[in-house]
Simulated scan of single mutants.
Amino acid sequence: MKDGDVSLILMNVTFNDTGTYECRVKTGNHHKKRANLGGDPISIITLRVFPPYQKVITAEPGQNAALTCRAPNNNSSITGVEWSRADLGDEYVLLYRDGRFDPEIQHPSYKNRVDLQDRQMKDGDVSLILNDVTINDAGAYECRVKTGTNIRKRANLDGDPISIITLRVDPPGRPEDGSVGLIVGLSVTAVLLVAAVVGFLVYKKHKQQQSQDSYQPPVEL
């Protein structure tokens, strides 16, 4: 505590660590009870824990999409996995709990179309595989996990997601912005080229007509 530095180091942060932390110190005589540290804190720190990343992926209708998610610290004692979308209400994209998948409260549009990339969830991998993507699948997908004891209620998985994946579904063959510019540029060039050729042919025909009009046959002797 050189120079009065009593800063706290919190390792392996989790979402449960979110909150307000108060720091108090005692100087002078030794103390044995917290009551001796009563009074106002010398520092108040609010810790907010955000998902490690928010990723955007793009797929076309009919393709399979992989939505990546990994539990913190590669935790292997995962007892619950939830993939959800806020616009689906109380229904899930995928729910795994008590050692099995729960299809009862799964949204009908995802039945038989979703699965975990690794059902063993090795190294904390709880990535979602979405088969046969449709336009209606576009949206933000949230990944939550539960570790430790078994779960039986959704409330145990409430809280901030550990990963948010936004899925964009583009119609097949839809050109990107750069491709649109290239196509437009090539189209303009083609039009100008055609116009130049037509203009040249018109000019050439006009000159030929002038030559015919100015032609005088030789005088017969």
Rank of each mutant, 00 (worst) to 15 (best):
residue 1 M to T: 02
residue 3 D to S: 15
residue 4 G to H: 04
residue 5 D to L: 10
residue 8 L to P: 06
residue 13 V to I: 15
residue 15 F to V: 14
residue 15 F to H: 09
residue 16 N to F: 10
residue 17 D to T: 05
residue 19 G to L: 02
residue 20 T to N: 07
residue 20 T to Q: 13
residue 22 E to N: 03
residue 24 R to S: 12
residue 24 R to M: 08
residue 28 G to K: 09
residue 29 N to S: 12
residue 32 K to I: 09
residue 32 K to W: 12
residue 32 K to G: 11
residue 35 A to S: 14
residue 37 L to A: 13
residue 45 I to Q: 00
residue 46 T to V: 02
residue 47 L to N: 04
residue 49 V to P: 05
residue 51 P to R: 06
residue 54 Q to I: 13
residue 56 V to G: 01
residue 57 I to S: 05
residue 60 E to M: 06
residue 67 L to G: 05
residue 70 R to D: 14
residue 76 S to I: 13
residue 76 S to N: 15
residue 77 S to A: 15
residue 78 I to Q: 06
residue 80 G to V: 07
residue 81 V to R: 07
residue 81 V to Y: 14
residue 84 S to M: 14
residue 85 R to K: 14
residue 88 L to T: 11
residue 88 L to C: 14
residue 91 E to Y: 15
residue 94 L to Y: 11
residue 94 L to D: 14
residue 99 G to Q: 07
residue 100 R to W: 13
residue 100 R to G: 01
residue 101 F to S: 00
residue 107 H to K: 15
residue 108 P to H: 10
residue 109 S to E: 09
residue 112 N to H: 11
residue 112 N to W: 11
residue 112 N to Y: 07
residue 113 R to P: 07
residue 115 D to W: 08
residue 115 D to Q: 05
residue 117 Q to S: 08
residue 118 D to M: 00
residue 119 R to I: 11
residue 120 Q to R: 02
residue 120 Q to V: 06
residue 122 K to C: 05
residue 123 D to I: 00
residue 125 D to Y: 09
residue 126 V to G: 04
residue 126 V to F: 08
residue 127 S to Y: 12
residue 129 I to R: 14
residue 130 L to A: 02
residue 130 L to F: 14
residue 132 D to Y: 04
residue 134 T to F: 09
residue 135 I to D: 14
residue 139 G to Y: 06
residue 141 Y to P: 01
residue 146 K to H: 04
residue 147 T to G: 10
residue 148 G to E: 04
residue 149 T to A: 06
residue 150 N to T: 09
residue 150 N to D: 10
residue 150 N to G: 14
residue 150 N to R: 13
residue 151 I to G: 15
residue 152 R to M: 07
residue 158 D to T: 04
residue 160 D to T: 11
residue 163 S to C: 01
residue 167 L to A: 14
residue 172 P to R: 10
residue 173 G to V: 12
residue 174 R to H: 03
residue 175 P to I: 13
residue 179 S to H: 04
residue 180 V to R: 03
residue 183 I to V: 04
residue 183 I to A: 13
residue 186 L to K: 09
residue 186 L to E: 07
residue 187 S to M: 13
residue 189 T to G: 07
residue 196 A to M: 07
residue 199 G to S: 04
residue 199 G to Q: 00
residue 203 Y to V: 03
residue 204 K to P: 01
residue 206 H to N: 02
residue 206 H to S: 08
residue 206 H to E: 09
residue 208 Q to D: 06
residue 209 Q to G: 00
residue 209 Q to Y: 00
residue 212 Q to H: 10
residue 213 D to P: 02
residue 217 P to H: 06
residue 220 E to F: 08
residue 221 L to H: 15
